[in-house]
Design a protein around this nucleic acid. Structure first.
Lengths: 152, 152
DNA sequence: ACTCGATGGTTCGAATTTGAACAACAGGCG
DNA sequence: CGCCTGTTGTTCAAATTCGAACCATCGAGT
C-alpha cells in the first residue's frame, strides 16, 4: 500500500483546465461585475438567491450555504450590503437566534441592472464556447462531483 | 438589441454545478493540504511549478502567471515560503529587475510529502467520480474555455 | 421543568488578496 | 546617445476571508 496512483495525461489536463478555467472565469466575472454594477461576485450571488426565494428573504445560515461561503463571511457581506441599502436584516419570529436577510427594492433593482451584463460574460466565456452535448456531459459530470462533495 | 438571452435549464445547471464543484473542491483541498502538510493550495501549486521547471527555478512573473495569481499576491506568498525555507530568491544575471524563485531541498521534500495526499483528494472527488469518456469531454470543453479566456 | 449536545449568528484577530502607485530598468528606434 | 513605452517586482492601504471562540437559544430526551 501507500503507492500513489498518479494521473494520466487526460486526467491531468482535465484537472489543470478545471483550475485554470475556474480562476480565469472568476477573475473576469469579478472585474466585469465590479466595473459595471459595483458588485462583487459574492454579493451578486446573494442577490440572486434572495430574489429567487419566497418573499425575497432567507435565513443567514441557508444563504451562507447557498452562496458557498462561511458563516462569518456572510455576516461580513450582509453588513456591507446593508450599508449599501441592497439588503436588510429582520429577526426571526419563531427563533430568537434567527436572522433573515431581506432583499430591498434597491437590491432587486441593482440585480436586474447587473444580470444582463453578468450573463453575457458567462455566455461568452463558458456556455457559448461549448456544444449542446458538451454542456450536457459536463453538467452531468459536475453534478456528480458536487454530489460526491456533499453539496447535493 | 438589449434583450438578454437567458440560460436554458441545462446551461443553468452546468453553470451552477461548475461554481459549486469548484468552491467545494477547493475547500476540501485547502483543508486537506493545510492539515496534512501545512501548505495552502497556492503554495502547493508554487512548489509544483518550481519542481517541474528546469533547475527548479522560475521568474516571479512567469510563476505568477502559472499559478494564476497576481504579482503582488505572489510576492507575498514567496516571502512567506522563504521564511519557511521552502523557497529562496535569487536575482537574475541578465536582467537587474528580474528575480528567480528557487526551490530548496526542503521545499522539494515538502512537495513530495504532500503530493500523495493531495492527489488522493483530487482523485476521490473529481477524477474517479467521472468515466473515461466524461474526463475526455470535460477536458476538451474546459480547455476550450481556457483558450477563450486567453489562458492558452 | 431540566440537562445536554447541536444550532444560529456574531465577533475578533490573523492571514490573505487586491489594485493602484511606485521605482528601476529593458529595449527599440530615431 | 536620448527618448519613450512597456516590464519587473515590490510596497502600501484597504478590502476581504478565514477559523476559532463565544453567547444565546433550541429541542430532544428524561
Amino acid at each position: 500500500m501507500g503507492d500513489t496512483k498518479w494521473l494520466n495525461d487526460d486526467e491531468m489536463a482535465l484537472w489543470q483546465a478545471f483550475l485554470t478555467a475556474g480562476a480565469l472565469l472568476d477573475r473576469r466575472i469579478e472585474e466585469q461585475l465590479k466595473a459595471e454594477s459595483g458588485l462583487s461576485h459574492v454579493q451578486y450571488e446573494v442577490l440572486v438567491r434572495l430574489s429567487a426565494a419566497a418573499d425575497g428573504e432567507l435565513r443567514m445560515s441557508e444563504l451562507a450555504a447557498d452562496v458557498l461561503t462561511t458563516k462569518s463571511g456572510l455576516t461580513y457581506q450582509i453588513t456591507q450590503m446593508e450599508k449599501a441599502g441592497l439588503v436588510r436584516r429582520r429577526s426571526c419570529a419563531d427563533d430568537v437566534r434567527g436572522v433573515y436577510a431581506v432583499l430591498t427594492d434597491k437590491g432587486r433593482a441593482r440585480l436586474e441592472g447587473a444580470a444582463p451584463g453578468h450573463l453575457r460574460v458567462v455566455r461568452a466565456n463558458l456556455i457559448d464556447v461549448l456544444s449542446d452535448s458538451q454542456v450536457r456531459v459536463m453538467k452531468e459530470g459536475l453534478e456528480e462531483v458536487v454530489r460526491e462533495l456533499g453539496g447535493a
